[in-house]
């Protein structure tokens, strides 16, 4: 067990190092994209949605986690193919690479809580004790992100189109998820469609903790827990099934 933790820790550290290699600003690059989005949204949408009180805070509480989701999924999807050289020479479980890709991104998320936290305080964030719920919420979101991404990762080994397709669909998913807007702006007769988007429920979860400063409803907790466990289980199952064929397609 200790040996496994040592392996995962070392590869995670390698991923973090690789992420910022060859760049001068390093970690700050990872803040730049969400910042730019935040600027654009605040500029464009805060007038379009005057009903949302403190729009910047509203947007950032979802944006941070979307950034985590999209970065993690990109890294996980590529993790196995980009380690093909190693996997062709050493007999190690391939799942090491998606796991460590997620760990590195999670590390980045935690680090980004510092500047984003400061920014949120600047926007008028006043947390109570509920803020601690962010820990189980992030853990649950990790399971979901991991399960979802390893499915695409495994398929991507067989067909590189899958990864490209996912990269193309991601912006669509971004706008389909109520990040820059509140789902209440959607006509009531269409709101049910949004609920098919798993990310919607996580966004609600994070917002209720960080924006509304309240305990998430038990319904919301139940939905996200079920989603996380389902995707995690399904992801592992599909990944294990497809893993045998990886070596033929590196």
């Amino acid at each position: 067990m200790r040996a496994q933790i040592y392996i995962l820790g070392t590869i995670t550290a390698k991923n973090i190092k690789l992420k910022y290699k060859n760049s001068v600003l390093g970690f700050f690059w990872s803040l730049l994209t969400p910042m730019v989005y935040l600027g654009i949204f605040t500029f464009i949408f805060s007038n379009a949605f005057p009903d949302i009180e403190n729009y910047s805070l509203y947007a950032i509480t979802a944006l941070v986690f979307w950034t985590y989701f999209s970065n993690s999924s990109i890294q996980i999807v590529n993790s196995v193919i980009s380690s093909a050289g190693i996997l062709k020479s050493v007999n190690v479980p391939t799942i090491i690479f998606p796991i460590t890709a997620l760990m590195a991104e999670t590390f980045n998320l935690i680090l980004s809580f510092v500047p984003f936290g400061l920014l949120m305080f600047y926007f008028g964030f006043s947390p109570g004790l509920e803020v601690l719920l962010i820990i189980p919420a992030v853990l649950s979101f990790m399971l979901f992100t991991f399960g979802f991404s390893i499915i695409i990762c495994a398929l991507n080994v067989f067909y590189r189109d899958v990864g490209i397709l996912w990269g193309t669909l991601m912006p669509a998913l971004f706008y389909f998820t109520p990040i820059a807007y509140s789902y209440e702006v959607i006509p009531i007769s269409y709101q049910w469609i949004v609920k098919f988007n798993p990310l919607f429920h996580y966004v609600e979860l994070f917002r209720s903790i960080l924006y509304y400063n309240e305990m998430p409803s038990s319904e919301l907790i139940l939905i996200t827990t079920v989603l996380s466990l389902t995707f995690f289980g399904l992801g592992l199952l599909i990944y294990k099934r497809l893993e045998r064929g990886f070596i033929s397609n590196f």
Partner: peptide, 30 residues
């Protein structure tokens, strides 16, 4: 590790870092 050309090394990392990664994956202790 099977010794074949260009296999098993991570091109973006330095030699030292590659020793560490390969060592870890081979199951070596610190």
């Amino acid at each position: 590790p099977v010794l074949a050309l260009g296999v098993g090394l991570e091109p973006e990392l330095s030699g030292h870092e590659n020793i560490k990664i390969a060592g870890v994956l081979m199951g070596l202790t610190k």
